[in-house]
Design a protein around this nucleic acid. Structure first.
Lengths: 253, 253
DNA sequence: ACAGTATTTATCCAACGGGTTAATTTCTCG
DNA sequence: CGAGAAATTAACCCGTTGGATAAATACTGT
């Protein structure tokens, strides 16, 4: 498996200059950037699947189709590798957030979009949730050392502050809620549901990750937050959920 | 330290029969129940501080003032120890929940009390949060094996269902929200804030665990949920937060 | 083409860590 | 009081794991 993925590498990364002049079949090929990327990707999977202490350096190497030595050569030791993965994860979500462009929507729609984005991002990137959990179990010990992440200081909060202010001015929102509180609440509603779905599913005896459950959750979250902000009924916002299903929820055991 | 706690044990757990007839100073004393309790307590600390993989059996033994062999003698191997701790944690919160007695409060007050209880329980028992995080990182692998926890099937959900129904009947609440969704949301708002406070504090550059921040968070959560349920303004419910502080929040950078 | 450097492979190892075995000490009950 | 059971200590075992060292191979500029 490891060997085969290594050969795959040789095929996929061969340069344009690689005509048919390959006399002796090379044992391996240089590709520092690609190697680094594959290492970080493999490390992301390993760390999110097993946590920091549970992650195995050898497994990361194997998954990356690399020799273990490569990790130390290209990134550093286990902790440095972990921090690099963490920084990459933050970098990714921040950059996607930047594209959200809430300024041009009317306030309630902006909040709805923010909730939906957060929910979908967490759904699409479960490793991100795991990495955050892992880092919080370590009380952010590594993140505190990071110079990069501190400078990322979310301009996102400013986006939300603006939306809230606009909402208050237009009369859509009833309170000038603290944007950080709001952001944390929105993240919390999605994050907890997804990151704790395993134990919650056991406890409540229902699969929280099937299609229907996920649809209902999104509708619930949007309804909860928008109802609180606008003072209107939750039911008004749950357009994603058909009336039939809404009734059945009340009866669910 | 380890040795001293061991001697402490001998002093504190000596039976009533222990007159002053101790001729030869005993090297140690039998105390199976006490030993088991100390092991589980030490294990709880260790697992919550370091996760499953990061926990060290030797450290648990040391913290319990015991010989490593005792863990295996009284509980079992590392995994069994972990499961025992987890079951104990669920047992504890469930039993406290049972005393909440929401039935005799009017619906909005019942919800407020539920939120406050959850928040305070999480604050008082940070190990519980860590254990749940750890178990979810393991995708509830251990919890699924537990026969005990499955039978605990929360009668709590029924309590909430009743409160919601009463609230709808009385006109206090506008929607018959799914009690499981509501419970998850209430837990989420507290859980995420506290379990992720380490990384969030770094990112937002403010200490989320100081007194003022905690007070504001509780007020925010109560306001959010009750406003959504009743359709009234969030501001009405934030009685814990003085007006001055509320204004300053809006300005906070 | 070739010398020097960058990248990768192949081994090795010392510490660690979960778990076990065997000996010791304390308690209980006839 | 003394023998057998229960509880505890002490010492050891051995696979694992993060990390290091050294040798081999591929590329680059001249």
């Amino acid at each position: 498996m490891t060997a085969s993925s290594c050969y795959t590498l040789i095929q996929t990364t061969q340069r344009a200059s690689g005509l048919a002049k390959a006399k002796r079949p090379l044992k391996w090929q240089r590709d520092p950037e690609g190697m680094r990327l594959r290492i970080l990707e493999a490390a992301k999977q390993e760390f999110s699947a097993h946590g920091l202490a549970g992650a195995r350096v050898d497994r990361i190497a194997a998954k990356a189709g690399a020799n273990k030595r490569m990790l130390y050569y290209h990134v550093g030791n286990k902790d440095e590798l972990y921090l690099a993965v963490l920084e990459g994860a933050y970098d990714k979500i921040r950059s996607e957030e930047r594209g959200l462009d809430l300024e041009h929507l009317d306030p309630p729609e902006a909040i709805r979009r923010l909730i939906e984005f957060t929910w979908n991002y967490f759904l699409r990137n479960p490793e991100f949730l795991s990495l955050l959990q892992t880092e919080n179990l370590a009380r952010a010990k590594h993140l505190k050392k990071s110079t990069k992440v501190k400078s990322m200081h979310s301009p996102f909060v400013e986006m939300i502050r603006t939306v809230v202010r606009r909402g208050v001015d237009s009369g859509d929102f009833q309170v000038a809620v603290d944007p950080v509180q709001l952001y944390i609440s929105i993240a919390a509603l999605s994050f907890f549901y997804l990151s704790n779905s395993a134990t919650l599913s056991v406890i409540f005896g229902r699969d929280l990750l099937d299609k229907k459950a996920k649809d209902e959750r999104l509708a619930h979250m949007v309804g909860l937050v928008l109802a609180a902000l606008t003072g209107q009924s939750m039911a008004l916002f749950e357009i994603a959920k058909p009336a039939q299903s809404r009734a059945s929820v009340v009866q669910t055991a």
